[in-house]
Design a protein around this nucleic acid. Structure first.
Length: 320
DNA sequence: ACGGATTCCTGATGGC
DNA sequence: TGCCATCAGGAATCCG
């Protein structure tokens, strides 16, 4: 399932395929994955130029070029961005000319053609985004096809049909509940700020999965970071000392960055925009290993349900 | 108001 | 071998 590292990888591998290209056609297939007020016909009318790709939480973003700006006017051959600077502020925007802060792209008073500022994809469980040649037909699970001005096609495939696509304008953003409710990015948060968000009676695992506490963490990286931090997933957030919460934050950041370096975790459906599998699933310590021995102490890993998700932990290494 | 349970969806898996 | 029940899970929505 695509979480922060997987969506980050898709954004990075997608950039060289779409930067500098205009969307000229938007076709929806079957039960619509489209949500929100701006419809696909607006895309076909405006034909916005994609100037960069990025991510916010688990949302994949295609940023559109602003009115009167020549961000991609020369249309250089884009390169895939290098592994991002660990000290950079996140989220980043990957453009043809380099990496910039996405936040800088939404200044006061900026204007986009037809007010279309970005296309947002939520991949949920099984969503995938690829760019294919012009003659590739839609597959059985293709739910949307965006044709680019070079004839290539951006496919949105989704087996379980949980994924969603939304075209966002700046005026519309304040009315988008999902966007508004997103908490800070774990990679740009300070340890103190992270710890202060866990003062709750709810289990720490539930808080990690809550996108308003921190954005982008799903079941895999919640389980793995709690194991590395040595914290039992059912511990109430406010029962953890600031020091242990800072440890959790440090472990979460380490694991997210390791997973980004490995191009994410491929359990079943997830692939990069090039169609490659990630490799971080080979480094799981607890996720999917219930009943198997703990890699640290040999104890049998336990499985419980927290916040409706399977939660695997080591009763010996992870303490409340 | 808050938090837990339910719902959406289909492919993989396991038991009989 | 084949069939059916179960499981996986992000987030909106329902409900106590």
């Amino acid at each position: 399932m695509p979480e922060l590292p997987e969506v980050e990888t898709v954004a990075r591998t997608l950039a060289p395929e779409v930067c500098g290209r205009a969307i000229v056609r938007a076709e929806l297939i079957g039960k619509s994955a489209w949500e929100g007020g701006i419809g696909p016909e607006a895309l076909e009318r405006v034909r916005p130029v994609i100037c960069g790709t990025g991510r916010r939480g688990k949302l994949l973003l295609l940023f559109f070029q602003r009115t009167g700006e020549g961000v991609c006017s020369s249309r250089p051959t884009p390169k895939e961005p290098a592994v991002p600077d660990m000290s950079a502020r996140w989220p980043l925007m990957y453009t043809a000319s380099g990496t910039v802060q996405a936040a800088e792209y939404f200044p006061k008073g900026a204007v986009w053609p037809g007010e279309l500022a970005a296309l947002a994809f939520h991949l949920r469980m099984t969503g995938r985004v690829f760019v294919f040649d012009a003659d590739v037909p839609a597959g059985p699970h293709t739910r949307a096809v965006f044709t680019l001005d070079n004839g290539r096609q951006l496919f949105f495939d989704d087996v379980r049909k949980f994924g969603r696509i939304r075209c966002v304008s700046l005026p519309e953003l304040p009315a988008w509940n999902f966007w508004n409710a997103l908490g800070p990015e774990p990679l740009e948060l300070s340890g103190e700020a992270f710890a202060s968000r866990f003062a709750s009676v709810r289990p720490v695992k539930t808080l990690l999965l809550d996108q308003s506490v921190v954005a982008g963490v799903g079941n895999i990286y919640a389980c793995e970071s709690l194991f590395r931090a040595g914290i039992r997933p059912d511990t109430p957030g406010r029962a953890l000392s600031p020091s242990r919460l800072k440890t959790l934050h440090a472990c979460l950041k380490e694991i997210l960055l390791e997973a980004i370096r490995e191009c994410g975790s491929s359990i079943r459906d997830y692939r990069t925009a090039r169609g490659d599998a990630g490799a971080f699933q080979n480094h799981f310590c607890v996720y999917g290993r219930a009943g198997e021995p703990c890699l640290a102490c040999g104890s049998t890993l336990h499985s419980v349900r927290i916040a409706g998700r399977t939660t695997v932990f080591c009763p010996h290494c992870q303490l409340g």
